[in-house]
């Protein structure tokens, strides 16, 4: 009965998220919201996670229609470092650092040739605190909240002209953003060994200044809902954990001097297959991908064609295991 109620809860969350009203924005900076990786942590444990993230943006989408127009292509490379330390079984702190390189190539035709621009540097840093509310009967429920700090560079200029590159090419956003997350995990859902994961991330964007302080800009608020499953699989005597999830992303329109900014915001739905491979008790490697299956965007936007990534994770525990029993 409990399982059935969880299924209903999960389904409702998913459907509700899809029915939210459209808006959104193509934000600068790194794909941090999708790389927080919340989850249960034991007391006095430490984990370090290094991820490479490749985001290929070549789809020009008008509303929900992809145009046959490959004139412009953007590639975002991100290197992310995530540190997580658990003060107790309930309370953990997370810090996420990143380096970003954003490239833009425009192929304007045989007679004109192509042009290339890039900007690279340190991106915005995220710090979060997570609190585990429930861990019982295979259920894990975690709340997390934190801040995105405007540490990323926002004034990188074209070396030829000296003119500052457009904001969506800059590694940083320039704004303090508030973030909160809910993570729900259910072990042994449907069959033994598997795990159902549901994560909801919300980023509330604050206002920032652009163009030498002459304009205020506010990236759209962003909602991520990840719902997926992972399960153990033995392949050639190796234990793998394939993961498969749906990711829904919703972003409100950005605001320029308080007014809606054209061609920002929308709904995205992706499938995100991946896997985790534990090498030892402490080391594991992982890979993921993100493929759009539905987009409903405001105006016309260059958006993700696909995204792939891979990384390594190191986990270590310093203290003794503590008994932790919560009322069911």
């Amino acid at each position: 009965m409990k399982k059935v109620s969880y299924i209903i809860f999960f389904t409702l969350c998913y459907l509700l998220s899809i029915d939210l009203q459209a808006q959104g924005c193509c934000a600068g900076g790194s794909p941090i919201s999708g790389n927080l990786n919340l989850g249960a942590a034991k007391s006095q444990s430490f984990s370090f996670n290094l991820t490479y993230d490749y985001n290929h943006l070549a789809d020009l989408v008008s509303g929900s229609e992809e145009l046959d127009d490959k004139l412009r292509r953007r590639i975002n490379h991100s290197g992310l470092m995530r540190f997580k330390y658990a003060f107790s079984d309930r309370l953990s702190a997370i810090a996420l650092f990143n380096l970003i390189r954003q490239e833009e190539r425009i192929q304007a035709g045989a007679a004109v040739g192509s042009t290339f621009r890039k900007a690279e540097g340190i991106g915005d840093i995220i710090t979060m605190v997570q609190y585990q509310i429930v861990q019982a009967g295979g259920n894990t429920l975690i709340l997390a909240g934190g801040l995105k700090w405007p540490t990323g560079e926002t004034e990188i200029a074209n070396p030829e002209t000296g003119i500052v590159l457009n904001p969506d090419l800059q590694p940083g956003t320039g704004s303090y953003d508030f973030m909160w997350s809910i993570y729900y995990g259910l072990e042994h859902w449907l069959f033994n060994g598997n795990r159902l994961n549901l994560t909801i991330n919300y980023r509330l964007s604050d206002e920032t200044e652009r163009f030498n302080g002459q304009q205020t800009y506010q990236f759209g608020d962003e909602l991520f809902v990840d719902a997926g499953i992972s399960f153990p699989l033995v392949v050639s005597k190796m234990l793998l954990y394939p993961e498969f999830s749906f990711r829904y992303r919703f972003q409100t329109e950005a605001l320029t001097n308080g007014a809606d900014t054209p061609n920002t915001g929308g709904h995205w739905l992706y499938i995100t297959p991946g896997f985790r491979w534990p090498l030892t008790n402490q080391w594991s490697v992982f890979a993921f991908s993100e493929i759009p299956i539905y987009r409903q965007l405001k105006g016309v936007q260059l958006t993700t064609s696909y995204r792939i990534g891979a990384g390594v994770q190191f986990d270590i525990r310093f203290g003794e295991e503590e008994a932790f029993i919560l009322p069911d």
Binding site: L67, D68, N212, T256, A259, D260
Partner: peptide, 22 residues
Amino acid sequence: NKDYDTNPYQDYISDNNFLAFP
């Protein structure tokens, strides 16, 4: 191949309070 039926500037023309650049 552009979406000529869509105005990429949307409500820009009618919004007197919105300038894209200073």
